[in-house]
């Protein structure tokens, strides 16, 4: 019994990439027909063969981690999913051309906010990614994106914020009022790729000034 094409079995086959973690996701027909299984293949743009993704053959869940298979930043990839229902119907759908440099989104940075009496320090920690160089060195976002920088805002009151920015990892907002609460917000920005992370937010209070007590 030849499986016939049944496109509604399979929808929205696409990569969801965040900090270079590349997950292939799709939607199946509404759950009314259980027992549909999915098989994933991938390939490099420009290559003739499709390669089966080990671990994502005849699976029932609707996602597959292709981070390792699509990890070369200079390459472009396609992935496709074949769905086969218990009644023998099938559908195959392909992603758009994917390149993790272009498509990955950036997660908020990991930051430590340290209050002092009249200042607040903000220390941004490097962000590791699953991308490795040929000699096995694990790359951080900062190493991948040459023009990556951090943008920091300190909300002093409802009308006025202080701004700092740069590539360094340590920042200090100074000239603040002791024993006062501030809201800090730090984003990662990558201008060349027009990428910007959601903010890391820290609420922090400057220390009381005990010099005259």
């Amino acid at each position: 019994h030849m499986a016939e094409d049944s496109p509604e079995l399979l929808q929205h086959v696409k990569f969801q990439s965040s900090n270079f973690e590349n997950i292939l996701t799709w939607d199946g027909k509404p759950e009314s027909i259980p027992g549909t299984v999915y098989s994933v293949e991938y390939k490099m743009y420009g290559e003739p063969e499709w390669l089966a993704k080990v671990g994502c053959q005849q699976i029932t869940q609707k996602s597959c981690n292709l981070t390792m298979e699509t990890g070369n930043l200079t390459e472009l990839y396609y992935a496709r999913v074949t769905a086969i229902s218990s009644g023998g119907w099938s559908a195959t759908k392909m992603t758009e051309r994917f390149n993790s440099l272009q498509h990955t989104t950036i997660k908020p940075p990991d930051v430590t906010c340290v209050p002092q009496v009249r200042s607040i320090q903000m220390i941004v920690h490097p962000t590791p990614t699953p991308v490795h160089t040929t000699d096995g060195h694990q790359l951080t976002l900062e190493e991948i994106f040459q023009d990556l920088f951090y943008r920091l805002e300190l909300h002093v009151n409802h009308t006025y914020q202080m701004h700092l920015g740069g590539k360094q990892r340590e920042f200090e907002f100074s000239g603040l009022t002791p024993d006062t609460e501030f809201l800090g917000s730090i984003v990662i920005s990558v201008p060349t790729w027009s990428k910007e992370s959601a903010p890391y937010v820290c609420r922090v209070k400057t220390l009381p000034d005990r010099t005259w007590t």
């Binding site: 009308t159 006025y160 914020q161 202080m162 701004h163 100074s174 000239g175």
Partner: peptide, 8 residues
């Protein structure tokens, strides 16, 4: 369009 601190 946004206030920017220059100096103390």
């Amino acid at each position: 369009g946004i206030p920017v601190p220059l100096e103390t």
